[in-house]
Design a protein around this nucleic acid. Structure first.
Lengths: 193, 193
DNA sequence: TAAAATTGTCGACATTTGTCGATATTTTTA
DNA sequence: TAAAAATATCGACAAATGTCGACAATTTTA
């Protein structure tokens, strides 16, 4: 089964048939991008939401001092994009690039709206996904405002065990809001226990 | 016009008529709660999402040391509740209480689902609200992981100027992930400029 | 209105985290 | 395969933030 069909149906109560899926998938554009290539760059309008079939990506912004801050990490079966820019058609402040070679399915805003009206399963899926997303954001915010760096890293490992292998430490550190040096110390300390 | 009708219509493209609204509002329960009373307590299932007509509330949890961490602040025209518990019917780890006397409109999960299927404007509104919510969460996460306490407080004032008057400092401090003492110092420093 | 609770501030000190330059190792590129 | 870039670690020191006890001012409660 196509991974996107499997994914959609894992969220919907009324399943998409293989036949409907053929129509459905026609609204997506296949795209491959190689490691370090950009899907989105600061100043662009985010034209597509990208469903990741294979590979990993990160979203980051560059502050006044020129430092990168990684705000999101993505792997298979996640959506990469800047929702603010996508919805409001404003220039994004973010960059998204590939951390590993990627296979993506791009969905434009127009096709997104089209599927929303034409395809009830997709609509339901969208609501469900937003719900889960909000739950995940709540957890991340809660952890970030109330825990030490050490506890945040422990939470991170628990929530995303595979990420530890797939993203370099300095990117994970930035995602957690700490420096690579601090993360390095935390890991060293944790070995001693 | 009823504030909830005004609110819904500010998000929907197809407006709710006054007549439809009469049916619509029938799905909500009016409730008043006084300052310091609880809407939700740790261990409860969150049965209702509460639309705030008047007043202010906070969502917080109590850590192992017995310290409160304020994860969300709410005022008029916001929704208070724990979405994870509401959607998945799991016991919540959060508490929600009133910071000022409140007038609320409660929407049960059943009525929520009912409105979703029966009322297209509500459905559209829900999607739109989730979208804005995610954008706001992205901003909060970005600020929290990449800025100093001082900059986070400046961001907070910019995004929620009225909150500074309506919530005590120690609650705002906790919301920002810093101690009341640190916030007190930050405010003192900022006076000198 | 008096007592109690809440709120905000402060100073001294402790702890956590950041900064920077150096270096070793691994991975990528030419 | 050699050179370059990326990654991870380290120590010394600096800066930011937390902890704690005290206290004054304000608000709430009885």
């Amino acid at each position: 089964m196509h991974p996107l069909l499997q994914y959609i149906n894992s969220y919907a109560t009324t399943l998409l048939t293989e036949k409907d899926f053929t129509y459905f998938i026609g609204h997506f554009i296949e795209k491959k991008i190689r490691k370090k290539q950009y899907l989105l760059q600061e100043g662009d309008i985010c034209k597509y939401m990208a469903f990741i079939l294979k590979g990993s990506m990160r979203k980051f912004y560059v502050d006044e001092k020129g430092l990168e801050h990684n705000v999101d990490l993505y792997v298979e079966n996640w959506w990469a994009g800047d929702r603010e820019s996508y919805a409001l058609l404003t220039p994004t402040q973010f960059n998204i690039d590939a951390c590993e070679d990627c296979e993506l399915l791009l969905l434009s805003r127009e096709n997104n709206l089209k599927l929303q009206t034409e395809c009830p399963s997709f609509n339901e899926f969208r609501l469900k996904l937003d719900e889960l997303n909000q739950i995940a954001n709540q957890k991340r915010i809660t952890s970030t405002i109330s825990n030490s760096a050490e506890k945040r890293y422990a939470d991170f490992i628990e929530r995303h065990p595979s990420f530890v292998q797939r993203f370099p430490q300095h990117i994970i550190a930035s995602y957690l809001g700490i420096t690579k040096d601090t993360l390095s110390r935390i890991r060293k300390r944790s070995l001693k226990r």
